[in-house]
């Protein structure tokens, strides 16, 4: 995980195989809903109302530079539930010329590790992903990313995404835009 925070997760307790399977299936289902343009279903069934959703790009400096991360990061996404809802409504208007004809997206999720948090029913989940986007006949772009998520089990027994910090590979965005969820 290309994040400086606690890369070895030393004090964390890894989850058992069955729970790991449940978490992996959660991530796969997310990818399927998002790839299928079922953004409202994703938001209402998989995202916690207290979500903090971030996508971070960090500038490139010499190793000896000790500037705090806050001075070095750009957040193309730093959204709560109301902003995620706004973004979903933008797609739902059907008025984005950019998305007509529709585009194909394929999210591949891998390197899933999951750990128990101190709070009961909360799990820290690390994963890598790639997303490929095909559009306008000739366009074929790919982004690579790492994620650090917290999933929380709700009173209904279902896991939901409580926080997500996506670290995007590469300093310069080369894929036209990042108008999609990772």
């Amino acid at each position: 995980m290309p994040s400086k925070e606690d890369p070895k997760m030393p004090e964390q307790r890894p989850v058992a195989m069955e729970l790991h399977h449940e978490i992996t299936q959660f991530l796969h289902r997310e990818a399927r809903l998002l790839d299928s343009d079922l953004l409202r279903d994703w938001l209402t069934t998989m995202v916690d109302r207290e979500i903090r959703y971030q996508l971070v790009i960090r500038d490139e400096r010499y190793r000896k530079d000790k500037s705090p991360d806050a001075d070095r990061e750009i957040m193309p996404f730093d959204d709560d539930y109301t902003i995620l809802d706004l973004r979903v409504r933008q797609f739902e208007t059907g008025m984005q010329t950019m998305l007509d004809p529709g585009q194909q997206m394929f999210r591949v999720v891998s390197n899933v590790e999951a750990f128990h948090n101190d709070s009961e029913g909360e799990f820290t989940v690390l994963s890598y992903g790639t997303v490929s986007r095909f559009r306008r006949v000739y366009e074929n772009e790919r982004s690579v990313y790492g994620r650090r998520d917290v999933l929380r089990r709700g009173e209904d027994g279902q896991l939901r995404l409580l926080s997500r910090r996506v670290v995007l590979g590469g300093r310069v965005v080369r894929s036209k835009n990042l108008l999609f969820f990772l």
């Binding site: 996508l55 193309p76 706004l86 010329t97 950019m98 965005v173 036209k176 835009n177 108008l179």
Partner: peptide, 25 residues
């Protein structure tokens, strides 16, 4: 402001993304 400005006109900008497709085509 930092968050909101990039949200509308950054690389995942909800307005910027409409524009970029126009500029390219």
């Amino acid at each position: 402001i930092k968050v909101a400005a990039h949200r509308v006109f950054g690389p995942a900008g909800i307005l910027e993304s409409d524009d970029i497709d126009n500029f390219e085509y």
